[in-house]
Design a protein around this nucleic acid. Sequence first.
DNA 1: CGCGTTTGACCGGCGC
DNA 2: GCGCCGGTCAAACGCG
Length: 211
Amino acid sequence: MERQEAALPPPLRQIPLPPPLPQNPPYLVADSSSHPPPIDHQLLADINNLVSLASGITSAGFNERNTLRGDAARHEASLVMSEYATAAMEEITERTLEKRSKAATSSRTRKAASPRFEFQTRTEDDVLDDGYRWRKYGQKAVKNSTHPRSYYRCAHTTCNVKKQVQRLSEDTGIVVTTYEGVHNHPSEKIMETLSPLLRQIQLLSGFSPDK
DNA sequence: CGCGTTTGACCGGCGC
DNA sequence: GCGCCGGTCAAACGCG
């Protein structure tokens, strides 16, 4: 139970948005399912806002209530931080579930084992940055199409989500992406954005990373 | 040298 | 049963 009593936790910083927005944003052309395809920039922006908001509140809390010291101030701040972190997490969960339920039309049957989502984007990039790491495992020429279809699997070991990417032959500017399955782990990009916040919470709460 | 991609073989479903 | 076709495997390849 050796805990690092850092005198004062470092203030949260505004985290720069990770996604490098392409000069040519992929335009959603057709979407049969409303699955979250390319990276959810709006979600990341919202998380950032929550982080900076929480940062402002906690630092303000430290400044204005410096009558509280030590553990009391830390505890106070951790409550505020936890509140915002929880809100952010709930927001993520809510949106994710909403999108998934929209896609899986069946209400309570559990047979929707591997849902598929297809959408089309007008973009120069064949593979869109959706925040996950993918490993290509095949490419095949499909009938009546001048462009081949590529097969990808999620690089995460325990996750077997797959996706196909194919460029339309009629309109070369359009890419069709098909997702199959649901990730059983968070996007690395989102965790990248959230981890500073989570670390801060642990620090303020006096958690030690090891159990 | 390690790891992700490439690429032809392989396989299973489906229609004739 | 056979051949087509989409999907996957896995060894070779090649890039950092």
